[in-house]
Write a protein that binds this DNA or RNA. Structure first.
Lengths: 344, 344
DNA sequence: CTGAAAGCGCTTACAG
DNA sequence: CTGAAAGCGCTTACAG
């Protein structure tokens, strides 16, 4: 009978307090592990909670305490395994801080991002980790700060005045170019795709600088389709311009996988008469044949960094803006060959 | 000055009501788009909300209305691209229902799953979509129902009495076996890995039945490592038993990718003198060489189905348990060859 | 169609 | 160390 009516049956803190013969305030202190309450009392209250099957009502607590123990995470794309790994890193540290993540997808569209951020505010998240959609205005993320909503940018950044956790894309490109140069390559292409944002531009800029500083032509940049399945058929773009490259650096491993297939279709032997470098170093790199040489970015770690940045800011909102930019690492496998061999 | 003090400055519904010269109740009705309020009044209240920069406080609303507009999603693994796609489908329909997803990772561990589910309750989610960790007891998911917490199982199921959205794994295996049989294969291996759960057992069972019904030996089941990078080196397991298979069906595309590399390393030519079928049909299948023939499961759709099941149950909690089991589809590409060619 | 009052389940000072 | 009271920002009957 009593468990028959649905909501009404909720066990409240007051029930627990009565059952344990203490006041509601005392019970509240026990829950929050305050040292103010005596050991004997604590044990009694805890027993009462167990016996009654009490469940803490975070919603009620939040209303009073103005903290929701939730953080919003908004990414432009959930399908991409790269974001899945990022999310995994974020979730792990947010979880171990006793908080919970509210997830949203902006679809890389600023209008959707507006909506999503409003929804986050309505849900009273304590802070948000945002990978800004392409074309996000700096004012947008700065405005969030004015709402008293702590924010950290992840992977992409549009404002210098807001925390950022990412990776040194430009240095990663330099590592790739240096490595290929050490093998004797000078005609190196760069295959890009997808929406334009800071992480995109940094890669392009890094490529350009690295090429120019060695006196190489930085102009061999091709754009391949965003859709994975259509990348192989675009491999011919590498050879359509005047001078043929002997190596290609890829925007990410998805492009590397696609071009690798496309080069194969064109009769090129990757790792023998053509060299290919990936970017991100996802798990698949190890099981490609030839094994893919790739610049590792470590999305899980980036996610962890972003979450820690946010946690710090929650503790001290007055912290000056910080950036945690992780170094990349070139993971050499088998997809590149010395130019000598290439020209045989 | 007024925006200087942080929390205190929140604009409340009462502020809006005063600004618009109506009562708080009326303002509340406007927000919830009740038809009870006059057009002129509505416009005035909406203008006030805009002018004041009002943000709805979901937390306060939930406390009174006993609905949080949040749903919990707990998956065993965030890193796996398959779950990322599932999540993407869930998020899309939850979002368009005006709700928000709280995400958690059970790590496929029942103890962590206990914790996570408790956290979900504390946060007052309206329902949860759960991919049960391996070894989850049926009682566990049934108990959730007794908490008055609507639950749907996704991808894996441990109880018949609780909603389930998944895919017909057994039929998928049958499709794979039938196809290989049509090419003349009879010595077909099955390569599995990972934790044991319903989706695992259904695949094994489907394989066994399909093989036995044709009079083939269903005993060639090998277990490869869970870690992607270690799969290629385990390809020799296919040939360690007495009879050598001429084809292998893989537990999923990750296994297919790994074994494809391992077979290559052993000097076998996939799609020529050895046949290989994947499972899941992820985007990468199209860019493998040879292109991977794979049984497609469509995780995005499964996620959408699960979310809709939950939404329905939220509307009517008394619905009998339902299951939405999607059909698989064999996507034929190039990784299988007729046995005739194989034996040449 | 609108207003005044009570209450959702906590936490927070403030006394004792 | 514990108790009584007020209040977080909404929604819900209940009158008018």
């Amino acid at each position: 009978m009593p468990s028959d009516d649905r909501k009404k049956s909720r066990v409240t803190l007051l029930d627990v307090a009565r059952h344990a013969n203490v006041s509601r305030a005392t019970a509240s202190l026990v829950i929050r592990k305050s040292p103010l309450v005596g050991a004997e009392t604590r044990v009694r209250v805890e027993a009462a909670m167990r016996e009654l099957g009490y469940v803490y009502n975070m919603g009620a607590a939040r209303l009073r305490a103005e903290r929701s123990h939730t953080v919003g995470v908004v990414v432009p794309n959930l399908t991409n395994p790269f974001f899945a790994e990022l999310l995994s890193g974020i979730e792990a540290v947010i979880d171990s801080a006793g908080m919970v993540v509210i997830l949203a997808n902006s679809g890389d569209l600023v209008e959707r991002q507006d909506m999503v951020m409003r929804r986050m505010r309505e849900h009273g998240v304590d802070g948000v980790i945002l990978c800004p959609a392409a074309d996000t205005a700096p004012e947008f993320v700065e405005r969030v700060g004015e709402w008293n909503l702590p924010l950290v940018q992840v992977l992409r950044h549009v404002s210098e005045d807001v925390d950022y956790a990412g990776v040194d894309y430009a240095a990663g490109m330099r590592q790739a170019v240096d490595y290929l140069a050490s093998l004797g390559h000078r005609k190196i292409a760069f295959a890009v795709h997808g929406p334009v944002h800071s992480a995109y531009l940094e890669r392009i800029e890094g490529f350009r600088e690295a090429m120019v500083s060695r006196g190489f032509d930085p102009g061999m940049i091709i754009r391949v389709p965003y859709q994975t399945a259509r990348i192989p058929a675009s491999a011919h773009l590498l050879f359509d311009k005047g001078e043929e490259p002997t190596a290609v650096i890829c925007f990410n491993d998805v492009v590397a996988l696609g071009l690798s297939a496309g080069l194969h279709d064109l009769g090129r032997e990757v790792g023998e008469n053509f060299s290919l470098v990936g970017f991100d170093d996802v798990a698949e790199a190890e099981v490609m044949r030839p094994r893919l040489t790739s610049v590792s970015t470590g999305p899980v770690t980036i996610g962890e960094n972003a979450a820690r940045l946010l946690l710090d800011r929650l503790i001290d909102p007055m912290l000056p803006p910080r950036r945690v930019v992780k170094e990349t690492q070139l993971h050499i496998r088998q997809s590149c060959a010395p130019l000598a061999v290439t020209t045989l």
